[in-house]
Amino acid sequence: MTYFSDFYFTSNLTSFACPDFGSSQCVAPKACARDPTTGKGYCCDPSFDGETGSGVCWALTSDCTNDNRQLTCRSGSSDWCCLYETEECTGVPEQRNVCWNRERSPLRNISVDVLEDLYSSLTSDAPTARTWAFDPATLLPETSTSTSATTTTTAPPTATGTITTSPISSPNDDSSDSLSGGAIAGIVVGAVAGVAIVLGGAFFLIKRRRKRVNAGPKPPPAELGYETRPVNQLYEADGNAMKMPLPPQELPAR
């Protein structure tokens, strides 16, 4: 979430200036935005390396009314006024007629390269537009690991960007995982070996018992009974002997 709203890039059709900025330009990667509390327009800067005062949202001076709602700023012989509750005097030496919003620019957490790429893409898609709106929150994931997004040291920021970190696994975690895996593997191997031993022992006992049974004395084979029948005797189909006529016999000579 950002404090400001209505972010957009300017174009040459708006003289690269935010509303009520006169001749002061706000050129990409800077972008115009609005303070939702006061409705005042600002130019929000990203953070530029080595540039004093970058990473803020700034606006031109307000008309001085000499009351408690304004803050008087002074540089040399010049005086100007800023809004007391939401603004502060510029922190850039010798800079005049500029007020900083107390809420720092959300663009300071976004890479300048990402902002410039977005501006190039938007202008290519709609080259005749006066402004190009965007949401800075959608650009934060693209610059979470970028080294170009830095914070300003000239004024204490009141909001921080989202920083994503990757969990770091410790050596102890790795060792515990490996030991648990080894223990599981050992249990499985032991179980398989135990089953194999039991089955082998049972097979051995059964085989040994069969050998003992087969080694005992065997009864002699039963003798086959044979029926003694007369030789050259014919028999009926039911097994009864057939009555054959006696052969003729010679009578003794007289």
Rank of each mutant, 00 (worst) to 15 (best):
44 C>K: 00
101 N>G: 08
166 S>L: 13
69 R>Y: 05
127 P>H: 11
140 L>M: 08
93 P>T: 12
230 P>T: 07
1 M>Q: 09
91 G>L: 09
82 C>Y: 00
117 D>Y: 04
48 F>H: 02
215 A>Y: 03
24 S>E: 06
223 E>W: 06
131 T>D: 06
201 G>V: 07
200 G>D: 06
186 G>A: 09
148 S>V: 01
234 L>A: 14
128 T>E: 13
188 V>N: 06
3 Y>Q: 03
220 P>L: 07
48 F>N: 01
46 P>A: 04
5 S>R: 13
226 Y>P: 01
89 C>I: 10
162 T>N: 04
183 A>G: 08
120 S>Y: 10
153 T>N: 10
211 K>P: 02
57 C>A: 03
38 T>K: 06
208 R>F: 03
196 A>K: 03
148 S>Q: 10
110 I>M: 03
1 M>L: 09
41 G>I: 09
154 T>P: 02
121 S>Y: 13
232 N>C: 12
205 L>R: 08
88 E>Q: 11
70 Q>P: 04
155 A>Y: 10
244 M>Q: 09
144 S>M: 09
101 N>V: 01
65 T>P: 02
63 D>P: 04
36 P>K: 08
69 R>C: 01
20 D>E: 06
175 S>T: 11
148 S>D: 15
68 N>T: 10
160 T>A: 10
176 S>C: 15
141 P>I: 14
217 P>K: 06
8 Y>D: 05
132 W>Y: 11
138 T>M: 10
224 L>C: 06
125 D>G: 05
69 R>S: 14
189 V>T: 15
89 C>R: 04
110 I>S: 00
85 E>C: 09
165 T>W: 05
214 N>D: 07
245 P>T: 07
219 P>I: 03
207 K>G: 12
119 Y>E: 06
196 A>N: 06
83 L>Y: 00
50 G>K: 03
78 S>I: 08
213 V>A: 14
123 T>P: 02
141 P>C: 08
44 C>G: 00
173 D>W: 10
219 P>Y: 04
28 A>W: 04
138 T>H: 11
79 D>C: 03
